[in-house]
Design a protein around this nucleic acid. Structure first.
Length: 555
RNA sequence: UGAGGGAUCGUCCAAUGGUAGGAUACCUGACUCUGAAUCAGAUGAUCGGGGUUCGAAUCCCUGUCCCUCAGCCA
């Protein structure tokens, strides 16, 4: 699927150049390093596709490595969820998930080595003092008074840090670089801090934990990663990434940064996503309105559609805000190819075919997928009483309305041409209760033998045969392009992002299970929710079909 | 105003000194047993100012705007 299309971008060009010059002996190995502190969301597939995709293209491997160096923020709960999302997207890693914490022993040894090299020292400054000494963006920092301790003293102190002799925050191990560096990252960055907190994997073995900058580059190095592909905010950290590896004289991967993806009408920050869940604006991390991969999956998005989107959007170093319409196009495009068609009515209006024999039923043949002949056909029951969509009838139709109206003839898809003869209304409210039509028996299947043209084709279900189900109609979670605008982003929540309503679907749907995807003709793509029971199906609307009539109406 | 990055159709991405192209969105039309899909067409951009060059989105100078960094987060 699209594999023959030659992808190229600045990262692949750099790697191709490395391979030309033999920088890594032609080997390409990457890694995807999520911190297990939240669910994967729409911002992640780009990094996933780049790292796993590139490794794959070059016949290399991509490790899934949990970046778990801060036990106060991370939890095993997220590990399996992250792994499942990546698997769902269709990517594979080696035998098992890797963890930065797997390297805590090696990392500790590297830290001692740095001390021995005179490139690291134990600092007694308090967190506040560290901040003061660091200087500012425009002023250089000052050296810590503890900066020039002897190697022996540093080693002793560091070992005692490890042994738990000091309180949290009392001391840190810092790299000895340059407190006047114009790059603040290089002003003697902290590499180990004391945290008397058990770790979800190493238990209480450690009370000191390495910082990201130290752990990350060395984890990459230890694994033999060749290309460490990460997002733009780590550009400033690359100098430090390189510094550690140079000092320690170990295998040195190349870090390359690319821009993260953002989407309009969408919020992706973990903090805000967490708030939506915590404050009950959505039902959970996998609420089908959430931009999490779990939410999109439940909503009915396919992994292929997400991967196609990533390919469509490309890669660059410019911050970008992708139009969510691109995502919507990607799902429609994929679902159009693969979804079986089915008829369902969301807002029923009863139709009585007055000249159709009472009690008669017949089965009509319907095409399962016009995009895919191999999907075959099915039989759909037809009878005297049907339901059609309420908006498919208008007593006083506007111009260009070619659905049902008094005197008008339309086609009931795969069934008959019918003409509206009567409208039955509630005498007090004026509400339309039912519509009476006559059918033309000569048009069975939907074709007129005399060749007369009928513009409108409606979907329908046979009232006595229909299955009653629940439809969950989703719309964008936010109704403004930039949900961050204004005082509080929750003010921009779309109050009608979910509408739950009963619906009628054709009987062929009986027995389909959670995750089943289909198109309700003329309405959109739907996916069976895990909340479904054999007694009551629940359909999530993944996305509507494009609707140019609605567009005309809107003007 | 220190350092590191970035600026091309509304949006996203190409063009690597030689016709600014594709995707998406929007608009027209054709086709249609889904007002879907498909097909055809239109609209629409090089951040500003200088310079080099036969020729500049690309190279040089200059200005502007945007992003990231002052966690013992990642």
């Amino acid at each position: 699927m699209g594999d023959e299309i030659k992808r190229s971008d600045f990262i692949r060009e750099i790697i191709a150049e490395h391979n030309r010059t033999g920088r890594f002996g032609g080997r390409v190995q990457t890694r995807f390093p999520p911190e297990p502190n939240g669910y994967l969301h729409l911002g992640h597939p780009r990094a996933i596709c780049i790292n796993f995709g590139i490794a794959d293209e070059y016949g290399g491997i991509c490790n899934l490595r949990m970046d778990d160096t801060n036990p106060t923020k991370e939890d095993v709960e997220y590990v399996e969820a992250i792994a499942e999302d990546i698997r769902w997207l269709g990517f594979h890693w080696g035998d098992h998930i890797l963890y930065a914490s797997d390297y805590f022993d090696a990392l500790y040894d590297y830290a001692e080595r740095l001390i021995e090299l005179g490139k690291a020292y134990v600092d007694d400054l308090s967190p506040e003092e560290v901040r003061e000494y660091r200087g500012t963006l425009t002023e250089p920092g000052r050296n810590s008074p503890y900066r020039d301790r002897s190697v022996e003293e540093n080693l002793d102190l560091f070992r005692r840090m490890r042994a738990g002799e000091f309180d949290e925050g009392a001391r840190t191990l810092r790299a000895k670089i340059d407190m006047a560096s114009p790059n603040i990252v290089m002003r003697d960055p902290i590499i180990y801090r004391i945290m008397k907190v058990p770790h979800h994997r190493t238990g209480d073995k450690w009370c000191i934990y390495p910082m990201y900058d130290f752990a990350h580059c060395l984890s990459d190095s230890l694994e033999g990663v060749t290309h460490s592909l990460c997002s733009l905010e780590f550009e400033n950290n690359r100098e430090l990434y390189d510094w550690f590896l140079d000092q320690l004289d170990v295998h040195h991967p190349q870090q390359i940064e690319f821009a993260k993806l953002e989407f309009n009408y969408t919020v992706l920050s973990k903090r805000r996503l967490r708030r939506l869940v915590a404050e009950g604006y959505v039902t959970g991390w996998d609420d089908p309105r959430m931009p999490t991969l779990a939410g999109l999956r439940r909503r009915g998005y396919t992994p292929e559609s997400i991967r196609n989107l990533i390919e469509m959007v490309g890669i660059s170093k410019a911050n970008s805000q992708v139009d969510i319409a691109m995502l919507e196009h990607a799902v429609r495009d994929d679902l159009n190819q693969r979804s079986p068609r089915v008829m369902g009515v969301l807002d029923p209006l009863k139709v009585v075919i007055t000249n159709y024999p009472e009690g008669q039923t017949e089965e009509l043949e319907a095409v399962n997928n016009p995009q895919d002949a191999s999907a075959g056909t099915r039989r759909v029951p037809f009878s005297r009483e049907l339901y059609i969509e309420r908006e498919d009838f208008m007593e006083e139709p506007p111009k260009k309305y070619y659905r049902l109206s008094p005197g008008a003839e339309v086609r009931l898809r795969y069934a008959y041409l019918v003409t509206c003869t009567d409208v039955v209304k509630d005498p007090t409210t004026g509400e339309i209760l039912e519509v009476h039509c006559t059918y033309d028996p000569a048009t069975r299947g939907g074709d007129a033998p005399d060749g007369r043209k009928v513009r409108g084709t409606l979907h329908w279900v046979s009232a006595p045969h229909a299955i009653e189900a629940e439809a969950r109609l989703y719309d964008r979670l936010f109704n403004v392009e930039d949900p961050y605008q204004g005082e509080d982003f929750v003010d921009n929540l779309n109050p009608s992002s979910l509408e739950v309503r009963p619906c009628y679907v054709e009987p062929s749907l009986a027995g389909v299970g959670a995750g089943y995807r289909c198109q309700f003709e003329r309405l959109g793509y739907f996916c069976v929710d895990p909340d479904s029971t054999p007694e009551r199906l629940v359909f999530n609307r993944t996305i509507t079909l494009r609707d140019s009539w609605a567009k005309i109406q809107g003007r």
